[in-house]
Design a protein around this nucleic acid. Structure first.
Lengths: 350, 350
DNA sequence: CTGAAAGCGCTAACAG
DNA sequence: CTGTTAGCGCTTTCAG
């Protein structure tokens, strides 16, 4: 790398002291106008940029906030990251993104990397595998602000941003019941994952409220992954009774299930109606288009970043909890009686 | 943030000098065994972590490589980033990801941010808008390693990783011609974008080689974006003659076009055969499934990172050029005569 | 109005 | 085997 201009360089060339240059650059009141001018000019000419590492060392801040997500390729995470980024940049922070790849081991090493890099705050959405929270306790011990979003942990003194998963699931089941479904299956993530469980509770309550009996072998918990979902659905389709409705806790799972259903020769939504979760853009491209619950990941990311910065300013602000609204977007995959009055491709129910 | 343990802290507690602690921690040969032990123990107990900022300041390296991509949500970029990340982490580097959002202004500010953060190297895939390269010249002037991938610039002394777009496009056209298409349309990105142009040249040559006349109003250049592509395709469908084949330089454009074709009431591939570019996972989920050119973005990312690190070690290694292979993945959208012998959902042609 | 000096956390000569 | 010193680039007292 070419020798960067430093305060020292500038000072020598101008025959003044380092501190004068420093002050001139920051428009300090008691610096001579002509001195200021000449400093400014030389700085521009030499393209001087203050050395961030020195600043950071001095300020004991890295001005970086770390992010850990399962995979940046999942639409909700790329959207959430964009939200975090927008807030962070505006506040003069950089972001450092890590992918856990749904692996606990990797997530632990992500945490260590971020801590070693002196991240000023850490924002996390859990890996599917994560059933052990020691690495997060470490963050807390170091008093580094910690915010969870989407896949959150409840019993840790940290902030959380997520949606009312219980209500969202209930609304999905209500909708399926309205479509005439009486045997509704549930495709969920690992059962120790809080949000998956909340969605299950909402599901169960939905069945109850609609006088539908819950059939235990229609409730499936698994790792996330389209292929796994497909296999699990294939099994469900062999069982008797066969489901006539399906609620999946992610669009990826719903898609895997749809593939299985099609291969099995059944029609969606006529034989089985399907509702997913996340409202991934791909939902609109499927045939049939997939009904799903939208949770506005961009807003979730923004909120998470805001809470993180708040903690940085004021340690008291630890442990905030924000609930964002969801909306069920109804599309072809769950609409057995096609509404004749609906002009657009989907209707939204808040 | 709680007071982090520093060398000073440890030294004071042990009643030795800072340098002794430093040396003990690095297993320096000439340090007493018992001293080492006690240092090691206290360090573990206090969870000492060397301060990265201090290290960086000293080494004049940030140990960070910067990445600028149009959008992390695009599958090829999230895959490429994963490739870069894997290489970088193994080499002890962190990555800093920026999104240009296809905007030149944003890209310029990304470059400034990364430069200000003292990125040790920068890896870029151009924004669609970018038709001015001054900001990259600035990187070069500072002698910061610069590597382009996928959307590259040719006439700048930097490294490049991309595929043989010309050949890839030719193979797509050859395939369409084999399917009996005689009026093949082209949906491209901005015409000043090098790779889009190369794909156009391959397209043109493909037509020529197959004795097909090029019809100028079947060649469209535009911003990237599904909606725009849909609109542009709607126009093409009104024209006479109407295309019976389509090659799009990205899957997003192909998808926009497919939506237009369906709405217009034509059948894919029977009336119009379609081939996209990138082999996004969504290709397999569409109806019909979309034929596309795969360019192995993960490998592209890895390669870009490797070239970047090489430049860091040795400035002479500037300006490497790597060409990765592509393969055309044939799916339903372009197979007019369904092969009876094909058991799987797609055939691959290298 | 400007300069000198100390210090952020760490390493690497240079001395013992 | 261990301590002292200087210095990475910058800000910030404290002295002029």
């Amino acid at each position: 790398m070419s020798e960067m201009a430093t305060l020292k360089t500038l000072a020598q060339q101008l025959g003044v002291s380092i501190s004068t240059v420093s002050r001139a650059l920051k428009n300090h009141p008691r610096i001579g106008l002509k001195t200021k001018k000449s400093v400014w000019e030389l700085a521009k000419k030499m393209d001087y940029q203050p050395n961030r590492m020195a600043l950071n060392l001095l300020g004991k801040r890295s001005n970086t906030i770390g992010i850990i997500v399962p995979k940046i390729g999942y639409n909700i995470y790329s959207m959430a990251i964009t939200g975090i980024e927008d807030v962070a940049i505006e506040a003069g922070f950089n972001i450092m993104i890590c992918q856990s790849n749904e692996s606990l081991t990797r997530e632990i090493s992500n945490v260590h990397d971020l801590l070693a890099s002196q991240a000023d705050g850490i924002i996390v959405s859990l890996a599917a595998e994560t059933n052990n929270y020691e690495h997060f306790v470490k963050i807390l011990q170091k008093e580094v602000p910690l915010v969870f979003f989407n896949r959150v942990i409840k019993n840790l003194p940290s902030s959380r941003v997520y949606v009312d998963n219980y209500q969202a699931a209930r609304s999905a089941v209500d909708h399926l019941a309205q479509q005439g479904c009486r045997k509704i299956a549930f495709l969920g993530g690992p059962d120790f994952l809080y949000i998956s469980n909340e969605r299950f509770l909402g599901f169960r309550e939905g069945l109850f409220a609609n006088d539908i009996e819950m059939c235990h072998d229609m409730v499936v918990h698994m790792e996330f992954g389209q292929e796994t979902a497909k296999q699990r659905m294939q099994v469900l389709l062999q069982n008797t009774p066969r489901p006539d409705g399906l609620f999946a806790v992610s669009d990826t799972l719903a898609i895997g299930a749809m593939l299985a259903i099609k291969e099995f020769g059944m029609k969606i939504p006529d034989d089985i109606a399907v509702v997913g979760f996340n409202n991934d853009p791909v939902c609109q491209l499927l045939s049939p288009t997939l009904s799903s619950i939208d949770q506005n990941p961009y807003a979730m990311g923004r909120m998470a970043a805001i809470l993180c910065l708040k903690q940085l300013d004021n340690l008291q602000e630890r442990e905030n909890e924000i609930n964002l609204p969801t909306k069920l977007v109804v599309r072809e995959s769950s609409e057995k009686f096609r509404s004749t009055s609906s002009p657009s491709d989907s209707r939204s129910v808040w």
